[in-house]
């Protein structure tokens, strides 16, 4: 059993009267690729945003290396710099070039020198195949390219966990492949990843753990082969049959 990085304990989140997450429990170990699947509105993205503290959980704990990050006295910025996030809408900084996007966090947050940040950024941009575009602004490149840059930006911070919030949902079908292949490479290199996705093939083939969510609760979780080939819950079966039919 490898080292536990992230533990979510009894996590709940409400927006007003609407309870989006109810008593969520799961654990992420080093090197795990956890896919969170489920219908739209089932709370997957909210869960991920809670883990990164972009949303404040209503109750429950998020333990990062055993320390509760929801408590007082925890600096959210410091924590976030160790937990990377890739968004559905990329969220690249529009006022910066591709290279600057990958450097700014290293310089401002990690206080690295510009030279060091540049070298590091180039390393990760090369990994995602975006080095020819370092001088481009985000508005000048395609969606798939933006998402690859966003991944490089997150990687450049050298996070311990990388969260993906539906990274391919805003992309044209032909661009989905390039992003997924980058993610596959990352998984093979042992990156700890938490992926909210509608790409069932990716969830089945790449992840080491699948979490199926429905109506704000974890309906079923476990080994992908087992969840996909032999789902235990009725709702999981319904969801998967709808998806696999496509």
């Amino acid at each position: 059993m490898s080292e536990t990085i992230l533990e979510v304990r009894h996590l709940s989140k409400s927006f007003g009267d609407h309870e989006v997450l109810k008593d969520i429990d799961f654990t992420v170990c080093k090197g795990d690729v956890t896919s969170i699947i489920g219908a739209s509105g089932s709370g997957k993205s909210t869960l991920l945003r809670c883990i990164n503290l972009l949303e404040t959980p209503s109750s429950g704990q998020i333990l990062f290396h055993g320390q509760d990050v929801t408590g007082k006295g925890v600096n959210p910025s410091q924590y976030r710099s160790k937990v990377g996030m890739v968004f559905q809408s990329f969220n690249l900084f529009n006022n910066m070039t591709v290279l600057e996007n990958c450097m700014v966090g290293q310089v401002k947050v990690l206080k690295k020198s510009k030279t060091e940040a540049r070298e590091n950024a180039m390393k990760y941009l090369e990994q995602v195949g975006m080095t020819p575009y370092i001088k481009a602004k985000p508005r000048q490149i395609s969606g798939g390219q933006k998402q690859r840059v966003a991944i490089a930006r997150a990687l450049a911070m050298e996070p311990e966990v990388l969260l993906f919030d539906e990274p391919t949902s805003a992309l044209d079908p032909e661009m989905v492949g390039e992003v997924l292949s980058v993610m596959r490479d990352l998984a093979q290199n042992g990156m700890t990843m938490l992926v909210v996705t509608h790409e069932m093939a990716f969830a089945r083939d790449v992840s080491s753990q699948v979490v199926f969510m429905s109506d704000g609760v974890i309906c079923e979780q476990g080994d992908p082969r087992q969840v996909f080939s032999n789902p235990q819950q009725q709702r999981t079966r319904e969801f998967l049959s709808r998806f696999m039919a496509h």
Partner: peptide, 27 residues
């Protein structure tokens, strides 16, 4: 400015001041 810009900055660990000076105010 799109809230995504702020979220992107927060997600890499930038503080509010850093987010404002590097990302939001220039735009």
């Amino acid at each position: 400015i799109d809230p995504g810009q702020t979220e992107g900055a927060k997600a890499i660990g930038m503080t509010h001041v850093q987010t404002m000076t590097s990302v939001i105010l220039p735009q």
